[in-house]
Write a protein that binds this DNA or RNA. Structure first.
Lengths: 219, 219
DNA sequence: ACGGCGGCTATACGTGGGTATAGTCTGCTA
DNA sequence: TAGCAGACTATACCCACGTATAGCCGCCGT
């Protein structure tokens, strides 16, 4: 349950995997070398191959480990009621060391189970929410869940920019405070009125099967 | 003004740069090779070095080009009023071919000017918005601008997951429609009531300089 | 006591790919 | 016509790194 779960008495296999998660996260898959990973794990390069077959094999093991970790954290904090901030807090703290790896994996389009799992959670969350609201949603629940997931992950994936732009270190309490408040603000204060939203949605429908890309409003 | 601005009668230097933007975007910086880029640009590998000095030099040129492009698009669509969807539409279409490169650059923490520029725009946008609203924001404007920027970029950076999870191709009209509607929904319908938000913000303040990371609510 | 197996190391091989150098061709100025 | 400059090519170098092989050592079952 330690944030970094591994003192130094771990099986070599696990040490290698943890070292890889760090190296891949910090340097990226291509720049990271088996030799460096082995050195960090305090084993010979050959052993890496022995256990994981190849560099790609090692990465797959890392991905799996990441999903395993997410599920663990999830299980531990499945009380997702907004009230229990402390619980979520601790859960996130456990993930933080793996942010760099996570961010890279997601940005490269890997770690799909992780993303999908979060979408699932978002859908559950929206389901509750829809039940307790009377206004009609503009989009189907799944779309909203996917977009919400992407948005929440953006903070991790773009943490270097967020950190720099806010002038705070990013796994860090200051950042948590600023970001959480900003998000609560967005969650609680509508940026556009319902009539404007309906008008925009209608305009979109009119553009319909129209032309090429679009993704999101300016901000 | 063409979406991909370059037929095939461009200066070799420009052809190389465009080829690099594509290769770096699709394969990543490390996996992309100077030789392949040269071939795409229909020049010899040596010429790449001649013009850009090194692979890193080439990447820097790409980053600069990206910022130049953003400013161009911005200038062209500086009428950021939500009404003129068509204008924004065309502007975005011009950027779309560079999404893969953009996404990678941002995820790796590069292309800071691009991010910062978007933060600036968000701040302007929020400034207007704050003026026309009476409710007190929970966070300072800059924090909100940074978070909003990260959120809107998340769609591009995580487009592979978004695309997969929605089952639509991602530079594409279908995706635009779904995503835009979902975003308008979030922008127009508050997810939590103001009293809950205030309570949560207060709770955060109480945790205060507390413990380690936090980033965002579950969804 | 022993045979075998799995964790582990040392060493070597092969090559992809960035970089460096030398040389060619075209066009311009005088 | 000479001669220089810069765009461009061909070729070679070199090393980092993934992969492969062969072997050592300690443990366990019998």
């Amino acid at each position: 349950m330690a944030a970094v779960p591994d003192p130094q008495d771990l099986t070599a296999r696990a040490r290698i995997r943890e070292a890889a998660l760090r190296h891949f996260g910090e340097e990226g898959f291509e720049r990271a070398t088996i030799r460096a990973i082995a050195e960090t794990a305090d084993v010979s390069p050959g052993l890496v191959r022995h256990h994981f077959g190849s560099k790609d094999g090692l990465r797959e093991a890392c991905d799996e480990q990441l999903v395993k970790l997410l599920r663990h954290v999830e299980r531990e904090a499945h009380t997702y009621r907004a009230g229990d901030l402390g619980r979520i807090h601790r859960a996130r703290a456990e993930l933080a060391p793996y942010w760099p790896y996570m961010a890279r994996a997601l940005a490269e389009g890997r770690a799909a189970p992780l993303f999908d799992e979060m979408v699932r959670l978002s859908e559950l969350w929206l389901e509750e929410l829809d039940a307790s609201s009377d206004a009609e949603p503009l989009a189907d629940r799944r779309s909203r869940a996917v977009v919400a997931t992407a948005m929440s992950l953006s903070i991790v994936v773009l943490r270097q920019h967020v950190s720099r732009a806010l002038g705070v270190e990013m796994p860090g309490a200051d950042a948590d405070l600023l970001i959480s408040k900003a998000m609560f603000d967005f969650y609680s204060r509508p940026l556009i009125g319902p009539e404007d939203a309906a008008r925009l949605a209608a305009a979109l429908d009119r553009l319909g099967g129209g032309a090429s890309p679009r993704s999101d409003p300016p901000a």
